[in-house]
Amino acid sequence: MPTTPEDAAASRHDEVDRIVEGWQSARGDLDVAPLAVFSRISRLSRYLEVARRSAFADAGLEGWEFDMLSALRRSEEDALSPGALMHETLVTSGTMTTRIDKLVARGLVSKNRSPHDGRAVEVRLRPDGVARVDAAMERLLAAERELLEPLAPAGRSDLADALRTLLLTFETDDPPEG
């Protein structure tokens, strides 16, 4: 009899098991083990994306707005330059300019010349930006906790560690575009 939620889940089959079994049957010469991992990651990312969109929409934000406001909110600095925001959010210069202007128009951030260097621009969160990004983050974390509920705390930690190990093999100073 299963003793943990992970044991219970392991004793059942999901749609990915059916797909893997089908490929094993059709092409027994292929090692389809990676499919069992990455198909599950792909399917889970769809559930996460729905949860993210809902959390952001409930706070009156789009995903890119959350990314921008979140970068500003978690920064140790009072303000960030457009270049620092580009680095944090992985977008181009032209995209960054447009996004900052849209957030300024919504009253979520301010954009001013730096008092230290009149040529530099600083972007700061405004009170409504703080309130919205905080609300979105609270909703997102609640949704993510719910998605992870079937895993025991140790399983969550093990999964985070395994995914970190895998991700570190790909992360560089030049992340993929898209």
Rank of each mutant, 00 (worst) to 15 (best):
P127I: 01
G129C: 05
V37W: 12
R113W: 08
S42D: 10
M96A: 11
R73A: 08
G60A: 08
R106H: 14
S75D: 06
G118C: 02
V133D: 02
V133N: 00
L151C: 02
A36Q: 10
E6R: 09
A33N: 05
P127M: 01
D78Q: 13
T3R: 09
L85G: 08
A154P: 01
D58S: 05
D158N: 14
L151P: 00
D78Y: 12
V37A: 10
T89G: 06
E49L: 12
V50M: 06
R18S: 12
D14L: 05
D67L: 14
W23M: 15
A160Y: 06
R52E: 12
A135L: 11
R99T: 05
L159R: 08
S81D: 11
E146Y: 01
M86T: 07
E62N: 11
F170Y: 12
R40Q: 11
T97G: 00
A57F: 03
M68D: 04
D134T: 13
E146R: 12
D128L: 15
T4Q: 04
S75Q: 11
P82L: 13
R27A: 10
R106D: 14
P150F: 02
H87A: 13
F38Y: 14
A84W: 03
P34C: 09
I41K: 09
R124A: 15
D7P: 00
L159T: 10
D128C: 01
A79C: 10
D29W: 13
D161E: 11
R139C: 01
E62F: 10
P82M: 11
E88L: 09
E138R: 13
T92A: 06
F66T: 01
D101V: 02
E171G: 03
S11H: 04
A59R: 04
P34A: 06
A131L: 06
R132F: 05
L168Q: 15
A136F: 00
A154D: 15
S42M: 10
K111N: 15
D7V: 01
A154F: 08
G178H: 10
R40E: 09
T3Q: 12
L85R: 08
L140F: 13
N112I: 15
E88T: 02
G107Q: 12
G83E: 12
L168I: 03
P2F: 04
E21N: 15
D173Q: 07
D161C: 02
D29M: 08
R139I: 02
G94F: 05
P175K: 07
R18F: 15
E77V: 06
